[in-house]
Amino acid sequence: MSDVLAVIDHRRGQLRDVSYELITAGADLADAMGGTLALAVISGDVDQFAETLDRDGIDTIYTVDHGEEFNHDVYVQSIEALYDELAPTALLMPNSVNGLDYAPAIAERLGMPLVTDAIELSYDETLTVTREMYGSKVETTVTVSEEPFAVTVRGSEWAKAEGTGGATIEPFEVSVDESAMRSTVTGFEEVGGGDVDITDADVLVSVGRGIEEEENIELVERLADALGATLSSSRPIVDNGWLPKNRQVGQSGKVVTPDVYIAIGISGAVQHVAGMKGSETIVAINTDPDAPIFDIADYGIIGDLFDVVPALIAEFDE
């Protein structure tokens, strides 16, 4: 048997989208390997999660009812116990922040080779994984010639699984060794509140690393004013403390869907794109013609923002 075990991602009572994508990726892989797909649902309201997750292509959904929230020690111990029982050939996990908090640990514990951040999987006697390197500038394929193996999959690369399945839901007992728990989650906090809600804006002028210096932020502020737009930014601007966290667009910031999104000096890293690809019209201004932002932009100017932005301000200030 060459079976696939996929581990579900949830947070604060909600299943995360990548969970449904893992079902698609896992069912395809199980097909190619001639095996079946099982899901592991660990912690939280596992019964409700299992019912919601029962889509086409799943053989069995194992539920581990231990604790409410994610804890990597519980996940590692639970996956280890499931692995001992089921001996899957492939372990699929989400390449989410929590996925990266347990996937390398369980792969290491079980002695499996690990490939992270897969954007495509294929299997023909051996596994081939497609993934990006150098900040999305190149794609690579790697083969994994050892089984079992572990893979984490990037969000939004597979379609969400649909339909209603007929999976068997099976509670799985894990006697969690509390003495081996080395970390405790004490709470959660929403950050990035404040006076401005960039998710409300119809037009966003968004600034990235290309702005170079803090004092240049004023230039894009003037453009936002001239256009009647709201100012947002990519991650490095917030990391540098040049704009507050509530202005950040992207995976760890806000997901925005304005009518018009104007990306200025933003290269378009995958984490940023995750937060703005739903915008109706995307305009990019960047010096680098190879910048990934041009792959998703509708309109663009390849040029120096310090020439283009003042010219654009002049057009609207006349």
Partner: peptide, 16 residues
């Protein structure tokens, strides 16, 4: 520590 989760949520965790 604080762990930066997706979507502007941070997890507060104590690690031994």
């Amino acid at each position: 520590v604080r762990r930066e989760l997706e979507g502007g949520v941070e997890e507060l965790t104590d690690v031994e």
